[in-house]
């Protein structure tokens, strides 16, 4: 279940958002997985469909088990998925994965990393 929590920056008004072409400044979402919540933050967000939100700049997925950083991600609130075709950095305990994008399914139970990928295990 995706939940749009709040627009944090109270100084940004509706006019400035329209002018900048950004629907949401510093958006925050949560994916409710079966075992854990994944908190998603970014600098900018745009609605690109009924259920889809494009997140741009400093997009971070954070849960108790892992975090993912990327520059641009599309989340689908209905399908509980998130997809990115940009270079991403996954970090969990003693493990780092660098890839050319990712796709989170089933509230984080399945994560696909795209393209040339490198896993480093410490």
């Amino acid at each position: 279940m995706y939940k749009f929590i709040e627009n944090y920056d109270e100084n940004i008004n509706e006019n400035s958002l329209k002018f900048s072409g950004i629907d949401i400044a510093e958006p925050r979402f949560t994916i409710s997985g079966r075992d854990e919540n994944i908190n998603i933050t970014a600098k900018e967000g745009n609605f690109i469909g009924e259920d889809k939100v494009l997140l741009n700049k400093e997009v971070i997925f954070d849960s108790s088990n892992f975090s993912i950083q990327a520059q641009s991600v599309i989340i689908n609130r209905k399908e509980q998925s998130a997809i990115s075709n940009y270079k991403s950095l996954f970090k969990s305990k003693k493990t780092i994965i660098v890839s050319d994008g990712f796709n989170i399914h089933q509230g984080g139970l399945k994560i696909e990393f795209y393209g040339k990928s490198k896993i480093t295990i410490k």
């Binding site: 399945k110 994560i111 990393f113 490198k118 896993i119 480093t120 410490k122």
Partner: peptide, 27 residues
């Protein structure tokens, strides 16, 4: 900086590279 640190494997580390991605199945 994290990307750069991944280019060379340090002693004790395991490095895995692939051309076509990784699928993680948590369950």
């Amino acid at each position: 900086s994290l990307n750069n640190s991944l280019y060379s494997r340090e002693i004790g580390q395991t490095e895995i590279t692939a051309e076509n991605g990784v699928e993680v199945f948590q369950d």
